[in-house]
Each structure stands twice: as C-alpha cells, then as structure tokens.
C-alpha cells in the first residue's frame, strides 16, 4: 500500500508550496499520474481521502491527468500506445520497447487560496 506514502508526499509538497506563497489553503491540485506508474487509482483515492484530513488540502479539488503509456520500438522505430511493459510492437512483434511516456508521477499545479489582510 505505497499509495499512502505517495499521498503523504503530495501533501508535503503542497504544504511547502503554500508556505512559500505566504500561507492559505489549497483550492485545487492537479497531478500527472501515468498509467505505467504503479499507482492503483482505487487505492490512491482511498489513501487520498484519509490522508488529506486535517491538512491544507482537506478541501482541495483533485484533478488527475492520466498519462497514457507510449513506447518506441527499437527495432522498427514505430511509436505506439502500451498498457504493459511487455506489450509487443504491433508492426514487427518485437519487445525492444523504449518507454516514452506513462511513468509520470508528479504534482503539476496547485491553486492556492490565500488571505491578504488589508
């Protein structure tokens, strides 16, 4: 259940960004999670709901961009979508895949709602 460690890391990153911005709370958070990134979304959602309690992300709207896996065949240079590392090239049948995308796991943006006293 590494999803909870992932959620806790996201909260750490977000809280540090909010502090840098001078305080407030997160209104929205946008994540890139590739389909090849070993994150089980069901487990992630469960961990998310538990993890954000009492944090600056408690009321944040979560947006997850699922980045589809894409590979390049090193035999025939074809670029094609993959769901698994072991998917073969649809043209030449080879397994010499170079992963181009799908392993993303990052915090893209945070919308911070801050209070400015005047």
């Amino acid at each position: 259940m590494h999803e909870l460690s992932i959620v806790m890391s996201i909260i750490e990153i977000a809280e540090s960004e909010i502090n840098k911005a001078g305080g407030g709370i997160a209104d929205e958070i946008e994540l890139d999670i590739g389909t090849l990134s070993t994150i089980e979304m069901e487990a992630f959602d469960f961990a998310w709901n538990q993890g954000i309690r009492g944090s600056l992300l408690e009321d944040a709207k979560l947006h997850v961009n699922r980045i589809e896996g894409k590979a390049k065949c090193l035999d025939c240079e074809l670029e094609f979508p993959i769901e698994n590392y072991y998917d073969s090239c649809p043209v030449c049948g080879g397994h010499f895949n170079q992963i181009l995308q799908g392993k993303e796991l990052k915090v893209k943006t945070i919308t911070i709602q801050s209070t400015v006293d005047g």
């Binding site: 750490e12 796991l105 709602q113």
Partner: peptide, 21 residues
C-alpha cells in the same frame, strides 16, 4: 471589521512526487 480579500493563485509546481526520496 478587519477588511481582507481572498485571492487565488495558481502555482506551477511540476515536481516529481518522489522528489524527496
């Protein structure tokens, strides 16, 4: 009485979640 306004700011974080590790 302590006049304040809320402002929203979008921060481009672009940080790997496993960055610290």
């Amino acid at each position: 009485n302590h006049d304040h306004s809320h402002s929203k700011k979008i921060v481009d974080v672009e940080q790997d979640i496993l960055h610290q590790n």
